[in-house]
């Protein structure tokens, strides 16, 4: 019953923009509570559109997004979002940014939770500084804390680490998993980084463009913590890369043999 409650369901979701672009066509996905789902795909495949539809910032042209049976047509308190840029409010201190979504709480409780959240992302000493004084990685951590502090059931991440350098990115990926383990929210992660998808996700959705739709879903059940250097990791990565190549109708290279071509299967 409780599992049923926070199941995130996308049911035949389509999005046509006013300029006639079919960004999404009849996408249906069911995301289990606590699942980490990565969405990858070439540019224009509608992966960000999908995320925005779930966030309620945009509304699907047809089809439904539901969380625990409740239709999402506007931003919802159980759904948090982290954008590609930190998007901190420059006129609020780091602590006030983290507490931005906690207006309804008493200031004492807000302060306690903000302090805990900042400590959790390792920035307890930055509570009273302005966002402009943070590095890119620190700012994105604050954005993570801001999205997580209202304790969402679903956290959406729109290429959250793509603007960071490789070292900081790997660092934050591990950190995200660490934070996720606290309350195990459902994570929906849009990324163009296959490494990132494989290191984080339980399931990788490969999307194809024009119109945006799901091309393939790849389960990724490597044990955690995942070793980025291991052969199993490399194998999983190649499967995703091969699916990506096929989704773009590109000739697969060395990873072609890792999975049979659906067209070839029909030939038999």
């Amino acid at each position: 019953m409780s599992e049923q409650r926070d199941m995130l369901v996308l049911d035949h979701v389509s999005k046509v923009y006013p300029n006639g672009v079919h960004a999404l066509e009849t996408v249906s996905v069911t995301v289990k509570p606590g699942e980490i789902l990565a969405i990858v795909g070439g540019s224009g495949c509608g992966k960000s559109t999908l995320l925005r539809a779930v966030s309620g910032l945009d509304v699907a042209s047809s089809g439904d997004v539901t969380l625990g049976g409740v239709t999402i047509h506007a931003p919802h308190e159980k759904i948090g979002i982290v954008f590609q840029e930190p998007r901190l409010l420059p006129w609020l201190t780091v602590a006030d940014n983290v507490g931005f979504g906690l207006e309804d709480l008493s200031s004492a409780e807000r302060e306690t939770r903000v302090r805990a959240a900042l400590a959790r992302v390792g920035l307890a000493d930055k509570a009273s500084v302005w966002p402009r004084e943070l590095s890119g990685g620190q700012a994105q951590r604050v954005a993570l804390a801001r999205a997580l502090v209202p304790r969402p059931e679903v956290l959406l991440l729109d290429e959250p680490f793509s603007a960071l350098d490789a070292f900081t990115r790997a660092d934050l990926q591990d950190h995200l998993l660490d934070l996720w383990a606290d309350s195990r929210p459902t994570l929906l992660l849009v990324t163009h980084d296959v490494d990132e998808a494989v290191v984080l996700a339980d399931r990788v959705l490969v999307m194809r463009p024009r119109p945006g739709r799901i091309f393939e879903a790849i389960d990724c059940d490597l044990p955690r913590p995942r070793d980025r250097q291991s052969a199993a990791f490399d194998f999983a990565k190649r499967r995703v890369l091969a699916a990506l190549d096929r989704s773009l109708d590109r000739k697969s290279q060395d990873h072609a043999e890792t999975k049979a071509d659906p067209g070839a299967a029909m030939w038999w």
Binding site: L57, R87, L89, F100
Partner: peptide, 11 residues
């Protein structure tokens, strides 16, 4: 617009 969107995301 991105800052306004943050406000909207927090309802």
């Amino acid at each position: 617009r991105k800052i306004v969107e943050v406000g909207r995301a927090f309802r």
